[in-house]
Design a protein around this nucleic acid. Structure first.
Lengths: 144, 144
DNA sequence: CATGACAGTGATACTTGGTATCAGTGAGAC
DNA sequence: GTCTCACTGATACCAAGTATCACTGTCATG
């Protein structure tokens, strides 16, 4: 079963209709490498209305098909989500994002809950850095 | 020395002028309890132009007088910053934010850097939860 | 088949949060 | 006095996202 089909099954399972517009958006999303903005999807699925793209992105977010990535300039991007709760490490130079295998703040959340009497419901964690490729002398020279 | 004076000194030290508009914005910022939006400041310093408020907020952010707080609805707020790098725990019910004493992901950053060959430059970490007051039966009953 | 309900649609107007522009102002240097 | 220049407010603008609305395709029912 292709990824596209599997997303479509998810939609069907929740009584959402499978429409050409939705398929176009989903296909465009799945074709993205790394993280992408709604604009990227809009550009690739020109036939689909702006509102529909936003609506479909929200649907996909609710279905955990994509997750949101907060860039260090404050802009919101998306990324195909192939696992559950996790965090991202975003290269500020080339823009690539990689998923971190597990959520490393679970212990922290428990400690915090005990220390503060808050009931902790969620958290945002993103790391920003420079990937190996962007740190290599070649890349550095090319940028200069 | 009042907090206001101390902020003014910081500005002076960096050759920024002390103007009535800036003083009004800074006073309004310092008067806020917890986190606040630019709109809150605009509302309290009506005589000051919109652009100037935004400009001054950026100045204060650069000077570490305030820090930015990302709310769980994605909106950006500010908070008077009385220490260095730290994170926030925001109550999703009453909106109060508290500072966490230290950045708990320092070790994590070092581990990550070793594991991924990224040079890690920064991170965003915010926790969302429900504070003790908002979890108390009285508060729960009052909300119902 | 008719028809009615309704999820979904695209165009478009709007809102929100923030930035760019620009002519004007006031304080200090000379 | 006058020149410079940081700073100002008004305003136009921009990007991202949402609300509205008339329309469409699908499906269940009579």
């Amino acid at each position: 079963m292709s990824e596209l089909e599997s997303v479509i099954r998810k939609l069907e399972a929740l009584d959402h209709r499978i429409t050409p517009s939705r398929v176009a958006v989903i296909a465009s999303v799945l074709a993205q490498s790394g993280h992408f903005s709604v604009e990227d999807v809009l550009r690739q699925a020109r036939a689909v209305g702006r509102a529909t793209v936003f609506r479909t992105m929200r649907l996909l977010t609710d279905l955990d098909v994509v997750c949101r990535v907060l860039l260090d300039d404050g802009s919101l991007h998306y990324r195909v989500s192939r696992r559950g709760h996790h965090h991202h490490l975003v290269c500020v130079s080339c823009g690539n994002a990689r998923d971190l295998d597990e959520c490393a703040v679970g212990d922290l959340v428990r400690e915090l809950a005990a220390a503060t009497e808050y009931e902790i419901e969620g958290h945002w964690l993103e790391f920003y850095g420079r990937c190996a490729a962007c740190r290599s002398p070649v890349a550095v020279a090319a940028r200069a």
